[in-house]
């Protein structure tokens, strides 16, 4: 790699990492204020954020899922929860969910959203009482 291209790569990576660390802190603070636990999920090609969600057994939560681009789906495999997530700027998919049985559940996009559609998956962990978070 030439000196010029090396400098370019280093500078770009530095800017990206610095900006992302600041963004992560801001997002964490924003989620703490809700009286009933609301779990905000962002869907975009081809990922959910967060892609790992943990709730306690018996805990009722509200999922609010927003798309940053096209229509996505949000389906918890084997549970029956199956939502259409409207396109960016066209609404929020909302659903109440109670983790009635401890375990690990996959969730996935089930509306074809592009070439990487089948990679768009996550995991919901329902913790048994006393289990570590």
């Amino acid at each position: 790699m030439t000196t010029r291209s090396g400098l370019f790569v280093a500078l770009f990576v530095a800017v990206v990492v610095a900006a992302s660390v600041t963004g992560a802190s801001h997002a964490a603070l924003a989620g703490q204020a809700a009286p009933v636990r609301t779990i905000e999920i962002t869907a975009s090609r081809f990922e959910f954020w967060p892609s790992e969600i943990s709730i306690a057994e018996g805990e009722a939560v509200e999922f609010r899922i927003t798309s940053e681009d096209t229509v996505h789906g949000f389906r918890i495999v084997g549970n029956g929860l199956n939502l259409v997530v409207p396109k960016r700027g066209k609404g929020v998919a909302v659903a109440r969910f109670t983790g009635t049985q401890a375990g690990r559940y996959s969730f996935e996009c089930n509306r074809m959203c592009g070439a990487g559609h089948n990679f768009m998956r996550g995991v919901l962990v329902v913790r048994a009482p006393g289990a570590a978070q």
């Binding site: 229509v71 789906g73 199956n82 939502l83 259409v84 997530v85 409207p86 396109k87 700027g89 066209k90 609404g91 998919a93 509306r111 074809m112 959203c113």
Partner: peptide
């Protein structure tokens, strides 16, 4: 209009109809 768009999206979401089917 934004209002129409919101309405259509909610109708779609509420109906459970997929916006894409086996062909996209």
């Amino acid at each position: 209009t934004p209002a129409q768009a919101q309405e259509q999206a909610q109708d779609n979401a509420n109906s459970g109809l997929p916006s894409t089917g086996p062909l996209s």
